[in-house]
Amino acid sequence: MPPTDRKEPGRKWAAVLAVLVHLIFVAVLVFGVSWQTREAGPVMAELWPSLPAPAQKAAPKREPEPRPEPKPEPKPAPKPEPKPEPKVEQPKPPKVDIELKAKEKEKKLKEEQQKKVEAEKQKQAELKRQEQEKLKQERLVQEQQREAMRQQQDLAQAVARQQASARQREVDGYRRKISDKVKRFINNQPCQPLNNPVVEFDVTLMPTGQLLMEPRLRKSSGNALCDQAIEKAILLAQPLPLPPAESGLFGAFRELHLELRPND
């Protein structure tokens, strides 16, 4: 009996299922494993000693203030002054003789003239007063504007000062990091016998933290071996820790003056 070709049952199903298994495997690899690790970038926080918040609130408040001030001033000023003057003049006519019409006329004329003059005076005075008030108001407004400007300037200065101090703080932090890193590499055996030596080096850095050239000795500890140990430590500590390129602080590190106390 010859061996017959036998039909394997469910070949199609086997193939479909095999493909399915692999699709699942690939899906698990692609979506199940988080291949990308996103590091949270350094966040720079500025601490404000509650300076800007009240100043910004105060600035808009002072603008409406000038409006209520000028209103009460002009009202009381003109009212009391014109009233007493006509009261003083009214008692005068009974004293005048009826016969002397001419005199009366003259008086009347005089009075009228006087009144006119007084009215003019009053008008002028009022005008003057109004002008003065206007001037006062303008001055007030100007002063307020000036004050607001000053406050804004103060604010900007404070912000600039704070930013500068934040930068300074960061620069100092990185300086400390650099000297800490260098210190880790110092073999301070040759420096041990010296009495608290201070060695100063000038280094020129590349943005990668590598040295551009050999460190230059500025102040020796008095012991060449100790100086050499520190120079070696600076070379070994490469790359020196630098602020990230985006911070724009590298300018402060291009030429760096390092003061190292190996025995600390």
Partner: peptide, 18 residues
């Protein structure tokens, strides 16, 4: 490895049914 895995899974299911 992908080929081997594919074939082996194909045979696994084929044998399972057979």
């Amino acid at each position: 490895l992908l080929l081997a895995s594919g074939l082996s899974w194909y045979f696994i299911f084929g044998k399972l049914f057979a």
